[in-house]
Every structure is written in structure tokens, then in C-alpha cells.
């Protein structure tokens, strides 16, 4: 695939949402959401179901109009054809009309763009070799997803939206797609993906935006997001009572699992010194850094629900 080096990409954000609110009737899907994508970065949009991820993507694709606020794609409106010719999208499609071949779909989508990629290049990049002549109904689940991925690349777009791209893929196909997404970024493309596989966001994204209740509640590199979860966890078996543990400086939360206790702490080293000094019989000690999953649960937890540890 040849790289696109348009002069006008230099200073204009591939996508920018400013104070976007979107309501469906009385339901507010997005509330004052602002975000910006920079050229050449892979951004993952993470959030629980109903957080507004899909609404945000649909607004950026011009499929929905914001109730208030502005959406701009390469400085223009996402509904304009000229803007769309710089975009590729892989959306969740339950079924594609089945009696056309994969290669025919590529031919169709290539015709929408002024400077499409050569078919052979798309086929090779998306791993469709040998199945171009096969009708959609005869493709396997992973092959169907790969074809939809290929459709997003037909126009050699500068900005690619991938909505849950690896849904229903086996592990090998998924890892192949990850490699392809990384190589898109290496070619200077901007990629926005939504996913509920945290591992996917962790491996792929330069930056993660966590969305909950229609707002961006956290953003940063995967490691920044993880540290946002409020430090590490200490597991051990101790004779100290919960109330005592709670009073140690740096302990944020105490949870019990059978004989053991799990402490969520800000400064593991200081807390450990105190613990070991107070309980000489302490054993089965384990210190872990939070996984992205913990960070995610921590960040998106409904403020109304109790802060107890789910062990």
C-alpha cells in the first residue's frame, strides 16, 4: 500500500469533536463530549455498552447530526462527499447481500473513491488471496470480517474507523488484523477503533479514550490509563482486622476473599513496611500491578454503586 502524503493533513486534525451533545428523544447519549485525533495515531474508544461509543463514531461518519456542538473531519463536515473520500469505515454489519463475490465488492467500493488502491494491493493487505471470486455467502466468519476490513481500505483513506473489528474472529485472524492496523498507522493513517477487548486496546492503541455516560472520563496511553486505576494491589493473609488495615496511610480499599485480604493501595512499598511491622505472621504475600481491565472497571464504575472489591 502506498502512503498518502497530502499537504493539507499537516495541521488539520483528522477528527475533532467539540462539546458534542447528542440526544435521542429524552435519552442523552453524549454529553459535552470533546475529543481530537492526531494524524498517524491509533486511538481506542473504550467504554461499557451504552456509553456512547457508537454514537460518537456515527457522528464522526456523518450518519447522525449532533444536538449541539461541532464535529469536524479534516476541518470539514463529515456529510460531505469530499470528506468521506478521505475516510474508510468498518462497521458492524449483520449481513451483506450474499450473492456478490468479495472481489466484486472491492470493485464497487473502489469506484466511490477518486484514487483507490490497486485491487491486488488491497487483496494482499487484507489477506483475501484466493477468495476474491467466492460469493459472500460462502465465506467463513473471519473471511467476512476481513472483507469488511478491506472495504474500509479501498479508497486509501487517511482516517479509518473500525467498529469492533475483531468481533467473531479466531485468535490467529485477530492477531493478523492487529498487525494490519499497526501497519496502517506506520503508513501515517489515523485509526479510531472501538472495542470491548481490553487486550486489543492495550496492544494496538497509542492512546485510549475511556467513555462512560456520554463523556470522556479518562484518556492517555495504555500505561497511563492503568496507573489511573489507583495503584497496585496487595494480597496476603494477615491477622490484622479490616478496621486496622483501613487506617494504614495509602490504603484505599480493603476486600476479603476467604482467608486472604486484598488491599488497593497508592504506595505499595510504604504500606508493605507498615504491614510487615505490625503482623509478623503475615504470609502468602503477592503484589500486582493493575491490568487494563481493572483500570477500566474502576474508571467506568457507576458512582452510585458501592466501592466494594469484586474478588
Amino acid at each position: 500500500m502506498s502512503t498518502m502524503e497530502s499537504s493539507h493533513t499537516v495541521n488539520v486534525a483528522p477528527a475533532e469533536l467539540r462539546a458534542v451533545t447528542h440526544r435521542y428523544g429524552s435519552h442523552t447519549a453524549l454529553q459535552g463530549l470533546s475529543l481530537q485525533l492526531k494524524p498517524g495515531e491509533v486511538v481506542a474508544l473504550l467504554g461499557p455498552n451504552g456509553a456512547g461509543k457508537t454514537t460518537a463514531v456515527k457522528l464522526m461518519l456523518g450518519l447522525l447530526q449532533p444536538t449541539s456542538g461541532t464535529v469536524s473531519i479534516f476541518g470539514g463536515s463529515p456529510s460531505q462527499r469530499a470528506t468521506r473520500q478521505r475516510i474508510g469505515a468498518m462497521l458492524q454489519v449483520a449481513r451483506v447481500p450474499e450473492t456478490l463475490a468479495a472481489g466484486e465488492y472491492l470493485d464497487l467500493f473502489r469506484s466511490y473513491y477518486p484514487h483507490p488502491l490497486p485491487t491486488a494491493e488491497i487483496v494482499q493487505f487484507a489477506g483475501l488471496q484466493g477468495i476474491e471470486k467466492r460469493q459472500f455467502k460462502d465465506l467463513s466468519g473471519g473471511q467476512k470480517q476481513r472483507m469488511l476490513f478491506a472495504l474500509a481500505l479501498c479508497g486509501d483513506p487517511d482516517l479509518v474507523f473500525l467498529d469492533e473489528p475483531t468481533l467473531g474472529m479466531d485468535i490467529e485472524t485477530r492477531h493478523n488484523l492487529w498487525r494490519q492496523v499497526r501497519s496502517l498507522a506506520d503508513r501515517g493513517k489515523t485509526v479510531l477503533l472501538t472495542t470491548h477487548y481490553l487486550e486489543e486496546a492495550d496492544t494496538l492503541a497509542d492512546r485510549i479514550l475511556v467513555i462512560a455516560r456520554g463523556k470522556v472520563i479518562a484518556q492517555g496511553t495504555p500505561s497511563e490509563i492503568k496507573s489511573r486505576a489507583g495503584g497496585r494491589k496487595i494480597r496476603c493473609v494477615t491477622t490484622l482486622a479490616d478496621s486496622e488495615l483501613q487506617q494504614i496511610a495509602g490504603v484505599r480499599r480493603v476486600g476479603r476473599t476467604g482467608a486472604g485480604v486484598t488491599l488497593t493501595v497508592e504506595n505499595a512499598e510504604d504500606v508493605l513496611r507498615t504491614l510487615l511491622a505490625r503482623d509478623a505472621g503475615l504470609h502468602s504475600l503477592e503484589v500486582t500491578s493493575p491490568a487494563l481491565e481493572d483500570a477500566f472497571l474502576e474508571l467506568t464504575r457507576d458512582p452510585g454503586s458501592p466501592a466494594t472489591e469484586a474478588a
Binding site: 473520500q85 469505515a89 462497521l91 458492524q92 454489519v93 447481500p97
Partner: peptide, 11 residues
């Protein structure tokens, strides 16, 4: 089935 939406998002 979402196919129309994909086409609407395309150019």
C-alpha cells in the same frame, strides 16, 4: 442489517 449504514458512511 447495517449494510445501508455502511454505504451511507462511504462516499
Amino acid at each position: 442489517q447495517g449494510w445501508l449504514e455502511l454505504k451511507q458512511a462511504s462516499p
